[in-house]
Structure formats: C-alpha cells, structure tokens
Amino acid sequence: MSAGAPLLVVEDLKKYYPVRGGVFAAKVGDVHAVEGVTFTVAAGETLGLVGESGCGKSTLGRTIMRLEEPTSGRVLFEGKDVAYASKTELFQIRRDIQAIFQDPYSSLNPRMTVGEIVREPLEVHGMGTKAEQIEKVRALLETVGLTGEMLDRYPHEFSGGQRQRVGVARALALDPKLVIADEPVSALDVSVRSQILNLMVRLQKERNLAYIFISHDLSVVEHISDSIAIMYLGRIVEIGPADEVFANPSHPYTRVLIGAIPVADPTRKRSSEPLPGEAPSPISPPPGCPFHPRCSFAIDACRAAVPPLEPAPTNAGGARPHLAACIRKHEI
C-alpha cells in the first residue's frame, strides 16, 4: 500500500431510492441502499467488498462511478470532489475509473465485434486516429490472452472466460487507475476463474491498478484483496486489512459469513450454525445495529443506537486500521 493521499476517498456516502405506491404513485418511503459508507482505496490496492444480495454492494460501486447520483456524502478521486468536478475533470475521471461486470454474456453488445467493443471507449474519448485505436485494441487483446485475429468475431463465438477477458480488455482501454469489478468471476468455471484472477493480479502489478472487487465469494476475495469491507444492509460493519479481518473477525456478522463458507476439504467441518431469519428490509431498516434482529450477541443497547465503526480489539494501528461496528466487539 502506498503512502500519501489515497486514490479514492468515499465519505459518508448515501444512496436512497424512492419507493412509490398508491394511485398517484406518491412516494411512500425510501430504500436505503447505501447508508453512510466511508472508506479509502490507495493506488495499486485491492479493496474487497463483501456482503449478501441486496446489501448495497453494487449500488455503492455504481454510485462511485456516478452511474447513480448520490443522495448525500462525497466521493473524492485524486483529491477532486466528483460532484463538483468541471466537465473536463469529469471526462478525465470517467477515463480513470472503469468497470467490469459479472455477466460476460449480457454485458457485451452482441451486435458489435469484439474489436468494436474494446475500441468504443477509445472512440468516445477521442484517443488517437482510428488506425492507432485498432493497433491499441490488438495490443489489449494480447495483454488479456486473446489474439489479434479475434478482432472481427462476435461475442457469441466466445466462451464465458474469453468474454470476460474481452470485458477486462475494454475496461483497460483508457488506462484507468481504478477498476470497479462487480462479481467479475462469479459466472465462470473454476479453472477459468483462476485464469481471470491471475490476469487481474498481473495487470494490477504491471499498471499499479487499484481494484474495488465486489464479490460474495469469500475465498476469492481473500486471495485477491489487500483490504476488505463487509457490508450489511447498506452499511460497512467491518473493514480492515484482509488477513486481519479473516484471522480476527470482530463483527458477529463477519463471523457468521466466514463460518458459512463451505471449505474445500472433506476432513474439516463447517464451524458455525446458519444465520436465523431473513435479511431485514432496506425500506424499514431496524433501529440501532442493523444486524441485531439476527445476532446471537444482541442486547438492549444494540437496539438503541447504530454502533459506530471503531478500532477492533486486535487492531494493530497501522496505516490501515481494522474497524468494527459492534458495541460488544470486545466480548465476542
């Protein structure tokens, strides 16, 4: 992790969606998809963002890229507030932050050739002549382990892993500094998954790329992440160096999550009991700690106020602190 100002700062970010109902489609409430999220990402670093479906991971990613307007809070990229960026600054930021999506089948336009798909961002951003762009696309395809001849072929002619490589090539076309990868390997076979992970790690080292790696697969996240943030119902409930969080999970939800992953070793048995109940609704989140209705450690005080993110008992106090939002973190 590099010293100095972080590449990305997210401060108290909130994203609500109105819920409409009734005859006049009047607003009846809000979905609190992202509820006050704060973290930083350094250049060349991978932040793993983990949580279960509907916890707000993807909305958070989309809001950082400004595919969604935040309800409140700030996103600073290289110190510039994305909300107040001038047109030219925003244009630059859109180059510096790129995305890779989960589904290699639906995220590529089926009517465009692979060459056109990868070249499109270069064209939009007016990078060089057409001939130069095609040269660059050829080089990019080779970087991700495809060949230049594949330029004129269509996505349906490719396997899932090859399509995901095309997605990676497209994301890299503008030489971004940060790539937000939303479940990039979830739809892939085990052997193909490891190829894409290797590719992402290699490119990170070569280009000092930073990743926000969104996934529900903890074994993959543990492999690739320097830091990890655990989300529950729109909030980060635990964050810190990945090894630290895995070795000393300090929020009860993190413990349940880690305990619920089946381990690829038949001689070891799963360590925790399944979580009772269902994730509560983000439209009417429970008062206090969002996890209290399902938490085996919950006491009255947990229902009274939202616990702040504070240093975990084992926090070593390095550049990247280990924080947990649980008032009983010293007792569990």
């Binding site: 085990v190 052997s191 990170q204 492999h223």
Partner: peptide
C-alpha cells in the same frame, strides 16, 4: 489445484 486455498499466498 486451481482453487484459491485458505491461507495461501496472497495474489
């Protein structure tokens, strides 16, 4: 062998 293993070297 292609699975990331628990406690394996990062990246």
């Amino acid at each position: 062998r292609s699975l990331p293993r628990k406690g394996g070297a990062k990246k």
